[in-house]
C-alpha cells in the first residue's frame, strides 16, 4: 500500500504542460466525443472529456483547476445535447475536484491506480448525472446499469492509452 502513496519528490511534483495542450486536449476530446459515437454506433462506451478532466486534475494536483476544467468541459458537453445545461457540468466538477484531491495523496503515475480511478470516477460521474436528473430535477428517465459499467470499463481502457500519450507532452524542468 505504501507503494501507492505519494511520498517521493517525483510523486508529488506538479506536472506542467504546454499552454496550448490545456485548450487542445479538451477541445479534441469534445469533438471526438461528438464524432466517434456516430461511427461506432452502440459500442461507443467512452467519455473522452471525462478522461481528459481526470488526467489534468491528477497531473496538476489542483482541485480548483480540476473543478473549473470539469465544469467547462461538462457544460460544453451539455450544450451539445438537448438536455439542461449543467448536469454534466456538476458531475464533472465533482469528478475533477475528487481526482485532484486524490492526486495530492497518491501516486498518480501508477497504472493500476489510474485505471481504478478512471473506473470509479466514471461510475461516480454517471451516478451524479442520474441523481441530478431524477432526484434534483425530478424528471423521469430510464437507466441502463450495464451501459454505465461498460462506460466505466471503456474509460479505464482508454485511460491506459491516453494517459501515457499525454504524459509525453509534459514540460520537463
Amino acid at each position: 500500500m505504501a507503494v501507492m502513496m505519494a511520498n517521493s519528490r517525483r510523486d508529488i511534483e506538479i506536472h506542467r504542460y504546454p499552454a496550448i495542450l490545456y485548450l487542445l486536449a479538451p477541445f479534441l476530446a469534445l469533438v471526438l466525443q461528438a464524432l466517434l459515437p456516430r461511427w461506432m454506433g452502440r459500442f461507443a462506451y467512452f467519455d473522452l472529456p471525462l478522461i481528459v478532466t481526470i488526467y489534468f486534475a491528477l497531473g496538476r494536483r489542483s482541485p480548483i483547476q480540476g473543478m473549473f476544467l470539469g465544469a467547462l468541459v461538462g457544460i460544453f458537453q451539455d450544450a451539445l445535447t438537448h438536455h439542461a445545461i449543467g448536469i454534466n457540468g456538476i458531475a464533472k466538477t465533482i469528478a475533477g475536484y475528487l481526482a485532484a484531491s486524490v492526486g495530492i495523496r497518491i501516486d498518480v503515475q501508477n497504472t493500476v491506480i489510474r485505471v481504478l480511478l478512471n473506473f470509479a470516477l466514471t461510475l461516480l460521474s454517471s451516478g451524479i448525472y442520474l441523481v441530478i436528473y431524477r432526484g434534483l430535477l425530478g424528471i423521469d428517465m430510464e437507466w441502463n446499469w450495464l451501459n454505465m459499467i461498460l462506460l466505466a470499463v471503456g474509460n479505464s481502457v482508454l485511460a491506459l492509452v491516453f494517459f501515457p500519450l499525454l504524459d509525453r507532452f509534459q514540460v520537463q524542468d
Binding site: I64, F68, I75, A84, I90, T93, I139
Partner: peptide, 29 residues
C-alpha cells in the same frame, strides 16, 4: 478555499438548472 470554490460552482450550476426546468399544467416537471 477548494471546498468553497466547489460549493460556488455547484450552486451556480444548480441555479442554472433550476431556470431551465418548468412545471407542466399536469404538475410534472
Amino acid at each position: 478555499r477548494n471546498l468553497l470554490v466547489l460549493l460556488v460552482l455547484l450552486v451556480a450550476q444548480i441555479l442554472g438548472l433550476a431556470i431551465q426546468v418548468h412545471r407542466t399544467p399536469e404538475g410534472q416537471i
